[in-house]
């Protein structure tokens, strides 16, 4: 069957997916693109192979006021960079908080994200929205953080299912308790804990895609750019994520 899901026309002009827009779902669609930003000499550069280097695409991002701030920062305007930090700190920390599971780690990693951006400001090119670039760096750092954390836990706490990345014990208990009597009415705090547990039940990539879509209102195209995936892979990822969320929360509707 030919693809029925298509990207908006304005995006089709600038984006060519290496995987093509097939409508079949599956893990293969979630594989990262063969060449990604991470494989570039400098992973903080916006050098997605899927983005056609054309003037219209470039000028499109120049209208982004945050891109303008970043270009000023590139020219040595530290006040412009401070403005970016002030504008994005809460958004970044909120996403990282749910990715990493605690505020302290979220702030540490958030600081590291800004540090990476600042260090690489001289190489910055306006080939995407500033937020896409920033969350791309955040996603990579969070992946490394989780990987290193998993290694540490393997070394020190083999067999334990608690910790910042797992479902919080309290929420886990609530979910188990509520599952026994799904018909009862939950108060707001309980519902919030359940929703957090539902989010925790997603894979890391599903969680990131959900957070970017929900918190940042990112389009599939922007999420794809942020996570080094094809738009079709993002479509599959979000579809499975929403199915999982529905399955987890449905007993409490």
């Amino acid at each position: 069957m030919t693809a029925t899901w298509q990207v908006p026309a304005i995006v089709r002009l600038t984006v060519v997916s290496s995987n093509g827009y097939t409508s079949s779902a599956g893990e293969r669609n979630e594989k990262p693109l063969e060449r990604s930003w991470v494989e570039c000499p400098d992973a903080t550069q916006m050098e997605s192979p899927d983005v056609v280097k054309s003037e219209p695409a470039l000028s499109q991002y120049l209208h982004d006021p945050d891109v303008q701030l970043m270009l000023r920062a590139k020219r040595g305007d530290d006040a412009a960079f401070s403005q970016l930090v002030e504008s994005y700190q809460d958004r970044l920390v909120a996403v990282l908080f749910h990715l990493l599971g605690n505020q302290e780690a979220a702030e540490d990693l958030g600081q590291e994200v800004f540090l990476r951006i600042y260090r690489n400001r001289s190489k910055y090119e306006a080939k995407a929205k500033f937020s896409t670039w920033m969350f791309h760096i955040a996603n990579n750092l969070a992946s490394n953080w989780r990987r290193d954390g998993a290694r540490r836990r393997e070394a020190s706490l083999a067999g334990s299912d608690s910790g910042p990345l797992g479902a919080r014990p309290q929420e886990q208990l609530l979910a188990e308790k509520s599952a026994l009597m799904p018909a009862r009415v939950l108060d707001r705090n309980e519902t919030q804990s359940l929703v957090r547990a539902a989010l925790e039940s997603l894979s890391d990539r599903q969680k990131m895609a959900v957070l970017l879509h929900k918190f940042e209102q990112m389009s599939y195209i922007d999420i794809a750019a942020t996570m080094d995936l094809s738009p079709q892979a993002v479509k599959s990822l979000l579809s499975r994520a929403r199915e999982n969320l529905k399955a987890y929360l449905e007993p409490f509707f």
């Binding site: 401070s82 700190q89 809460d90 920390v93 908080f97 958030g110 989010l199 929900k214 929403r242 449905e250």
Partner: peptide
């Protein structure tokens, strides 16, 4: 299920975050 995600907390960065950064 998607709308329930609106209940997720969105913690802000601490007061010292920007100055420390």
């Amino acid at each position: 299920a998607w709308e329930l995600l609106d209940l997720l907390p969105r913690p802000n960065a601490s007061g010292e975050f920007s100055s420390r950064t």
